[in-house]
Structures are given as structure tokens and as C-alpha cells.
Amino acid sequence: MKPKLLEVKDLHIHFKTYAGIVQAVRGVNFELYEGETLAIVGESGSGKSVTSNALMKLIPQPPGIYANGEILFNGRNIVPLSEKEMAKIRGNDIAMIFQDPMTSLNPTMRIGNQITEVILQHKAASRHEAKERAMELLKLVGIPFPEKRYKQYPHELSGGMRQRIVIAIALAANPKLLIADEPTTALDVTIQAQILELMKDIQQRSNTSIIFITHDLGVVANVADRVAVMYAGQIVEYGTVNEIFYNPKHPYTWGLLGSMPDLNNSSDELLRTIPGSPPNLISPPVGDAFAPRNEFAMAIDYEQEPPMFQVSPTHFAKTWLLHPDAPNIPVPDVVQQRINRYVKEGEMR
């Protein structure tokens, strides 16, 4: 078993608003091992970005409140740490890649300086050493003509190149944990594929752990070792990438898988949709938050919140359907047929 790098225990994040307290994250538990990639998937408003920002302690307080829970990084709880102590961890031990490379770089600073800034901040390096390291990083992330790029400004580069720079900055201090919040959403598919390859390559070389936040299940299948599916501020299904894609147990996961066409979908069949929209987290529903959108909801779903049922040593799902007394609901046909086809194709390879 690989050593555990991060453990999140019963994390609750609230936001005070005029309308009331928004319970954005409602009891999230997960762990992350060294060198692995955990993907967090969910719709907007499911709490995936709040969770990842919370790990960096980037939630502004107020209006944000760390209402409950622990974030253990290398065994040390970082929730009570002061801003000064956090500044030593941010960018050094934990680094972040944001969605939009257009806005996450400083437009008035040369690219080289934006990279060396991190190195000089966190490492005992001279200006000269920092520059050498920055050049190495530019080469590592596949920037052609690093000498020239070093002196350029962000606006002189394309979106894909800028995201490479953002990755270079994130890697500058050799972080143990890299949080990537929708890093490829703003990019074209071809560029997305390059960035994903780059991230996997870097992970293999430096054994970095990655938390990858996305709503694109194709990307998840590509990068993740394990997957956490979030809905209404909670993890509703959690397992290895194969378990989530080939043996999904939660009706919300079925909905997500069914609503995404793959290249083999016939256009005669309608896509499976999840009816309705996510609940208001100011007053989360009693019972299972997904119940109003769940065609398989039972009476108990409206009364009591389901616990995490264990499916395998690594696979958990939060749905009453897994209770021994629940009726046996099979995976919807569209999803099951696709899984069967994938597995069959996999065996043929």
C-alpha cells in the first residue's frame, strides 16, 4: 500500500449569504495516496471546487466558514493553521492549476519572473539558480524556444501554451500535491489531450499526487486512478476508475454516464437525462438530496439520509438501493449496454 498523503475527514464548508447559510460542502471524506490521481466529478454547484479550494485554505473567511472536519496533509491538520503558516505550504507542498489560463497568469509580468517568483519564495536558491530551474521547467512542460518564452508576456502565447506555463509555475517548488480545477475545460480537444499527457508524464517522473476536478467523464476515464462523484455537497459514490465506470451503483452516477453520448451512440436513441436540477443548499432536502431527481427513489429516501454502503474494499456508494431490503434495481439498459460493449472491446484488445 502506498503511503497516505492527504486525508479529509467529515469536512463541512458553509457560506454566509443574505439569503441564509449555504451548506456548500456537507461532510466530505476521502483520502489520497502518494503518486495517484483522484478525480472529483459533479455538476456545477456540487461542491467540487469548494472542496478543492478548501484544501488550499483558499476559502475567504468571511463569508466562508470551516464548520467542521479535518484536512490532514502528511498527518498534520491544516484547518487551524494561520495564514502565515499556510503561505509556506501553498505553492510549496500543495500547488494548484486553475481552469482559465487567460486569467490565472499576471498579464504585466514576464513569464520567466512568474516562475522564478515561486522558486525564490520557497527554496533557498539564488536568482541564477532560479532561472536555471525555470528553464528546466519550461522544457519539462514542452514549451518550444524556452529562452525566448522566458522573456515574453502571457498575451504573446496561445491558450494551450499558457496552461503549460501555469503548470510549470505549479511544479516550480516540487509540490507533493497538485490540485487541478478543470485545467482543460477552456481548451480545445487536441490541446486538452496534450495537457493530459503532460500531466500524466510529470506524475510518473515526480510521483506527485493529483486531485483532478472536472465534469467531463471522458477526461476522468483518461486520468484517474480513483473517482469521487459529488452531488449537493457530498460524495455519493467513491471507487476505483474501473468500479465507477464499469460497475456504477449510484443512480446519479448512472445519470451522468447516460447523459454523455460516446462516439458509438446511435442518434436514434434519446440521451438519458437527469430530470430537474440540483437542490438549493441553503435548506438541503431531508433524506437523500438526490431523491427528487431519482426515478428509483423509495419512501425512505425522503425521510432518512442513506449511509455510505460498501460495495468492495475500495468502492462505496451513498444510496438506499444498496440496502439488503431494497428492491434489486438493475443499471439502466443504455448504460449497461455501453458498459458491456466497452468490456467486450477491452477483452478483444
Binding site: 477526461v219 454516464l257 477491452g346
Partner: peptide
Amino acid sequence: LSAVPQPDPLSERTRTR
């Protein structure tokens, strides 16, 4: 086409762009 990720981890691991 080769760059489109599919919701299929087995094929994703072997896919070449």
C-alpha cells in the same frame, strides 16, 4: 477524433493520440 476522451477507462489507457 483521436483526441476525444471516451468514458471508458480501459480504452483510455491504451489510446494513442
